[in-house]
Structures are given as C-alpha cells and as structure tokens.
Design a protein around this nucleic acid. Sequence first.
DNA 1: CCTCCCCATTGGAACGATCAACTCGGGCGA
DNA 2: TCGCCCGAGTTGATCGTTCCAATGGGGAGG
Lengths: 344, 344
Amino acid sequence: MTRVPGYRASAVPPTLADVAELAGVSRQTVSNAVNNPDLLRPDTLARVLEAIDELGYSPNRAARNLRTRTSHLIGLRFAPVQEGTANATMDRFVHSLVETSSAAGYHVLLFPGDPQDPTAGYDALLRSTAVDAFVATDTYLGNPQAAWLESRRAPFVAFGRPWDNPEAHHPWVDVDGAAGAELATEHLIERGHQRIAWIGWRKEQLIGEDRRTGWTRAMRSNGLATSGLASRSEDTVASGREASAVLLDEAQPTGFVCASDTLAMGVLHTLADRGLVPGRDAAVVGFDDSQVAQVVPPGLTSVRQPLEEVAVEIVRALEGLLTQPPIRAGGVLLSPELIVRGTS
Amino acid sequence: MTRVPGYRASAVPPTLADVAELAGVSRQTVSNAVNNPDLLRPDTLARVLEAIDELGYSPNRAARNLRTRTSHLIGLRFAPVQEGTANATMDRFVHSLVETSSAAGYHVLLFPGDPQDPTAGYDALLRSTAVDAFVATDTYLGNPQAAWLESRRAPFVAFGRPWDNPEAHHPWVDVDGAAGAELATEHLIERGHQRIAWIGWRKEQLIGEDRRTGWTRAMRSNGLATSGLASRSEDTVASGREASAVLLDEAQPTGFVCASDTLAMGVLHTLADRGLVPGRDAAVVGFDDSQVAQVVPPGLTSVRQPLEEVAVEIVRALEGLLTQPPIRAGGVLLSPELIVRGTS
DNA sequence: CCTCCCCATTGGAACGATCAACTCGGGCGA
DNA sequence: TCGCCCGAGTTGATCGTTCCAATGGGGAGG
C-alpha cells in the first residue's frame, strides 16, 4: 500500500486488501467472508466482518463484474409515454420491478427507446455486457424485440405473450385480459345491465382482441346479444368519446366496457356532453386502474392488473434464466381483479 | 488466445486483443481508436474501425469501469408512488432524464426507496462505486438526502431547491412554483374572477408554501382580497373535496387555484356533488399537468413543469460535477407554463 | 506411529480495459 | 552533422475482485 494516510482518505474506498490486512487474513478469505461465509471458521468470520464494518467496505462492483462476467443489472427499455392517454401501467410496473429485483440482488437499468426502432439500444448494452438480461415490455406489436433477442440468444423475459409466434420458447409473464373483460362484463350484468357495449382497439392490437373475447364470452354465456354493440378505435380520449356517442345513438347501451381507461374517459366525456350522470344513467368500466380511474369523479370502475405479481414472476423467471444451466420456464398467466367505483 | 474456434463463439464477446490481432496493431491502438481517434493516422484508424466492425466489438463495460473508476451510471431513487393521487411528475421526469442522460453517455440506474428512510440505498451504491452520481428528487422534506449526500461528498444534483439550508452548495435545478401559481391566478383574474381561492398543502411542505406566495402576489397586485380564501390540507382527493366544500360555503369563491392536480380533482368532486359545472359555474386550475388533467372532462387547466428542460439542466450540472476539477454550478430555476383547458 | 483425508486458509493468475512511460523514425533548426 | 522534438505506436503495469490449485494442521483409522 502506497496510500498516503489521511490525505482524502474518505475519497478512496477501502479494498479487499485493506480489510485483509486489518483482519490479519488473506484477500481470498475476506472474499469468502462476503460470498461464502460457510467456508470460514466462526471466529475468523467474526474478525473479518468486524474489519469490514470498521472500514466501511463494500465490494467494488466493476471489479466483481469483470471477474464474474455478471453485472447484476437488468435492462429495461423505457419508451416515452404517449401524452394525453391514461396509460400508467408501465410506470406502476417499473416501480414493482425495481422493488422486486432489488430484493433478488438486481438493479434496473433504464435505456431510451426509439419508437421507430424497437430493437435500438438493446444491442449496445448486450455487446458491452452491461446488463445480465432484459425485461421486454410492449411485446404485442408483432413482437420485434422478442424475436430479435431470441436470435441473439440474449437472456430476457417478456411481459406479454408471444401472440404471433406460438413457437417462441422464451419465458414470459402476462395478465389474462379476456378474464378481466369478462369480470367487468359480468359485473355490469349483475348490476342489471343487458345492453352492454364494448369499446376496444384496432383489430391489429392483439391484446385488445383478447380482452374483447372476454366481453363476448360473458355476453353469450348470459344469453345477451352483442351485435351492434362493439366498436373499435384508436386508444385516445377523443376516439372513445366519438365511439360512445355513436353507440348511444345507434344501440342505446346502458353499460360500457372499455379496453382502456383512456377510452373509458372518452365515454365519460360523452356522458357529460349529454348531461348524463355516470353510474346512474350509464355504467362505465375501464381497464388498467390508472391514477385517472382513482381520482376522477365519481371514481372509474376498472380492471386492475396485478403488476406486483407480474414483477415477482418476471424476477423469478430471470433468476431461472441466469442459473447454470438455464431453467427454461414457459409462460405464466395471471388473473386481474375488478376495482369497483362510482361509475358502475 | 486459447479460445476454441467455433465452439459457442457467439457467446464469448470479442475483446480488445481480438481486434488488435485482426487489425495488426497493439491493444492500446485499438483503445485509442475508440476513445481518442485523433491520435491515429487516418489509414490506421480505418483499418482498426473495420476490424471492430467485423468482429462486432464493444468495449467491456466492467473492465472499463474498473480501470477508469467510472461507471457512467446515474443513480435515481424510485420510490413507490402514492396510490390515489394524480402525481405523475416523477414518471414524466424519469423519461426525460433517461433520454437526456443517454445522449450524454450515461444510463439511469433505479434503486428502491424506503419511504421511512430516505437515505437508504444511496450508501450501498456509493460505496461499491456502482454509480458516478445521483439525482436526488423530492428534496423538500427537510432535505435529508441532500444533507447526507453532501456529508458523504457524494456527487449529486438535486431536483428541488435546498429550502431549509441556504448554505448548501450543491448544484440544483428547480421549477418556480410561485411563478406557476401566479400564472394560474392571473389567468383566472383575466377571465373575470375576483374571488379566487387557494387550496394548498400543510405549512411544513415548503414547496406548497412557495406556490402559495404566487397566488398571494397575484391577488394583491390586482387589489383583490385573500382573507378567508386560503386553505391547507393533505395532498389527497378527499382533502381537496372537503376543503373546497368548506370554502364554497364560507367564502363563495368562483375560482380555485390548487397546489396539485390531486387537490383540483377534489374540487371537481365537490362541484359534481353540487351539480355545478366546472368551467361554467366555477373555474379550477391544478398543478403538474398530470395525465389526469389531460383526460378528465372537460379538461383540467393546469400548471405544467418543464421537465424536459429540468432533465437537460440536471445532466448539464452532472457533467460539470464529474469534470476534473468539478465545476460547482449553483442553482437553476426554470419557469413553468399554464395549459388552459375546459375548467377555466 | 504412519497414512489419509478433510477443513480452513493462502498465493498466484486472470478478467479486459486504460494509464504511463517508452521506442522508433523523420524532420528541422543551429 | 548533431541534437532535439514531435508524431505514431508499443509495452508493461494496474484497477479490485474471484477462480483455481495448493498448503499446512489436525483428527480418524489401521
């Protein structure tokens, strides 16, 4: 050690060697105290731990990463949110993921996403071994990242089913959207509604189609008609407003089940336009239980995805993936719940 | 190289030495090609770059971090959001920060925060040299992180002024909340309102007090009375609802300026309770321009913080901080803007 | 008493990059 | 002609950790 004592000592973090010297053991023993305490005799372990504590030692991440070829970081593409929508799923999910992965010893690394090129960003992180694995979200749009990541043999877990690729054999976790829509529809039927409309997304959005089947299923199993009661549009407030206005004029529904909270807010706009009171004159159910649903008067009934559970399952899958040899789990499908509020 | 050719070659990323061998130069020359291209003769540079391209080489992050004592990561505490509030500031800010810092060559590392102990998590990352610097948000609550980080001589930039510590000399970026509230109040005055109420937070919330001064300033400079028109409460929809009901009964305001969108939503609840139409019977202005403000009927007028600019300034400050020697910038105060919608 | 084995611990090498100091020519001024 | 400097590359050391093989001591078994 040629370290000058006292001179900005706090700026130079202690190393294994420092701890070893203080405890009177070798570097490797200190390393074992940190990583494999079972290997040490109890008294030695105590002495080393004391030295670690006294110096305030933490293993240097870079050195450890270099040696173990591991970063304990999970990459997550954090694409810009679309303004003007109520979609907060992503942010709530990220919070859960940060908590859960931290408990498993991993941190979340965010990188920006180019909406035009869904695979941008992944490559650089992968080649520089900056992350151990990725969590791929928004895998519904033809799934380009998933296919790309698979072709690169990159470890990753998808939040979202590989809709268009049944042969995909990467682990994934998803929420049963059809079950959610069914829950919502059954709820309105119980409340006495018979003419219940569906407002969903364009047909290409496979998630939306999935949710729609839940509505269809509930209606049919209760012997209710669906014709003329379904509508598809963009995921914007304006589209939901327009679609609900047309539905009210042409099919006189008393209830609306929507593929998103954004669309449901559009319905609330239409009701306000016509002087109708949500919850009394017409029932509305949204999807995602966004903050909007929670604070808008009189409270928007909404399908809530169990994002905490999703995060737990994803981290579990990641851990399996990073084990030697990799345990290839299949998919996990979780059930959402319905949060009932004033609009129904 | 004792690498077995062909055997899982794709799983072992190429190193500097591989590139050097292929290009017929030394390791250091390849390193220079990546980091200091000016040092190379143009033809050598071209040859090296070609080899890099052919092998698909990217510098190993861990090795670089170890040698340079730098991680190019910025730590950000990502505390759980409070359910039931409309506060989306944090998430919008994170998006901006990810984009901006990426352009500057930095990635954002999220770590969980314990609401009970604001400094938890920072220490471990700091001592293991996992991040180069932190961005500290929510520095209003007596500023414990900021003080702690300063005492540790940790490089960080705060989003938020050091309210209670004028001697703090760390760089910070903030948005002028008083100016925002003043903007909102002036707007209602222009619209013809004279009795304009303020709904803010508990006095201990210095941010709330700051915003309140904007309301006071605008009222006084226009010769309008403020007595009996101000109220303070928790930042929840229920509190805003209650506060606005009391104000309506006791002071008959025609306009409400609120310290948050959450409180403003409470006002909308009260108006709905009484059959009053926001925008016609009473004007409401929120703060933060959350997604809720954007989608709720008839559209909530709100003060929008320039979070993109905030991110830019924060990254600028971080870069100054990580320069040798550190350039200690003071604070940067940005101006918000008012987004006018249906409620005013 | 010797051998064997196991436990606890040790020393050297390696991970892949950058830093610092050095070499080798060629050009230029005195 | 000599000496100096500068441009272009090279070489060895180093960052702090973990992997691997080896070491010494002590107890059990013959």
